[in-house]
Design a protein around this nucleic acid. Structure first.
Lengths: 192, 192
DNA sequence: CCTGGATTTCAGAAATTTCTGAAACTAGGT
DNA sequence: ACCTAGTTTCAGAAATTTCTGAAATCCAGG
């Protein structure tokens, strides 16, 4: 398979962005090709489209599968593996967010909870401990919200996003929530 | 400066997470040390705390400054540069989100808009074009929402997040928004 | 229980990123 | 104008990540 100039440029861009997204160039390119393709593709088609080695494609597909970002399909009378991305972009976004949370947030939350078992001894440790508490609470607030929103069906989610600027007006009409001010009580400490 | 076991473990964790967050280990560790410290730190203190070279610290700080994640401070009668992270964690989150959007989303949005100037010729290109449109519209919807939320003062933002599960009930009481169904009209195409 | 197309694994090669020490630079004090 | 304490830059070294080709594995017929 070979790519049209339009596809080509999109794929190249995804490759370059790959590194910023925490995946490597080839994985980004493989994803881009699958994303644009109207039909499922097998490894060989991807290989020729991108001009990389067969094993590289295999590893890339494996990684994309680990991210739940591609679907394995089979065509009748063909035992090769074919891959697609979901037609529904919202499903892709949900997967992306869920997987990033799993990899980038959850381990830190676990670690913070674990570290908070220790009682701080010195003044400096008390400050560090307080700082970790603040961070943990903030992450918990955000992931709690995410858990709620994630369960919304897509129609509702779009509705919520479209609401956008109206959010402010709505909040104005709600009572302030007591006991949730911006900062907790704050201790001052000295020393370099 | 040397770190307590509590600080040490937090710093090491941040270092390891660094790679998943798109920054490198040392940068993650530098940030962690500054985040926990009750007082501003100079480069030498960071160097001894982490046991890395002076130039590495310098580069790390430079990168953190490029991300707007640290503040440069000066103490009286001392011409060394001291650094801190903001006391307010919400400010940190806002910066983080804004910078990641700038680096990870905006370039793609620009590229998509640019690619859409081209008129698709083949059937396959028409499909690719449609797919890009879908993606662009989705990103625009999400960044539009972000732009609104970003302007909320922190109290309101917390209110919004705390609302969480109540969101669903609220949305139920709102009229559905016409013309914004889940998927656009969808063309079917064949061929491998 | 072979055969042959297809996929996966793996060890080393290639490329990229990170880290370092030395040199260059900067600016306040005298 | 020249120290001097401090910071930044930079070229090469070290470490890490990515990529490849060859070999190993898998598995659906025959």
């Amino acid at each position: 398979m070979n790519l049209s100039p339009l596809q080509q440029e999109f794929v190249l861009h995804f490759g370059e962005m790959g590194s910023r997204w925490g995946i490597n160039r080839t994985v980004g390119q493989i994803y881009a090709v699958l994303f644009l393709s109207s039909a499922p593709l097998n490894a060989e088609a991807i290989q020729t489209a991108l001009g990389v080695s067969r094993s590289n494609v295999s590893m890339g597909l494996k990684e994309l599968q680990a991210w739940n970002l591609v679907r394995l399909r089979h065509l009748p009378d063909d035992r090769r593996d074919y891959f697609t991305t979901p037609d529904d972009l919202w499903e892709i976004v949900r997967t992306l967010v869920a997987e990033r949370k799993k990899r980038e947030i959850d381990p830190t939350l676990t670690k913070l909870r674990e570290l908070q078992m220790q009682r701080p001894a010195t003044a400096e440790d008390r400050h560090a401990h307080a700082r970790m508490t603040e961070l943990r609470e903030l992450i918990e607030l955000m992931t709690g919200w995410y858990d709620d929103v994630e369960r919304l069906e897509t129609e509702r989610l779009i509705q919520l996003l479209t609401l956008g600027s109206k959010v402010r007006g709505m909040l104005d009409r709600m009572p302030a929530i007591p006991g949730l001010s911006r900062r907790e009580t704050k201790e001052d400490e000295g020393g370099v």
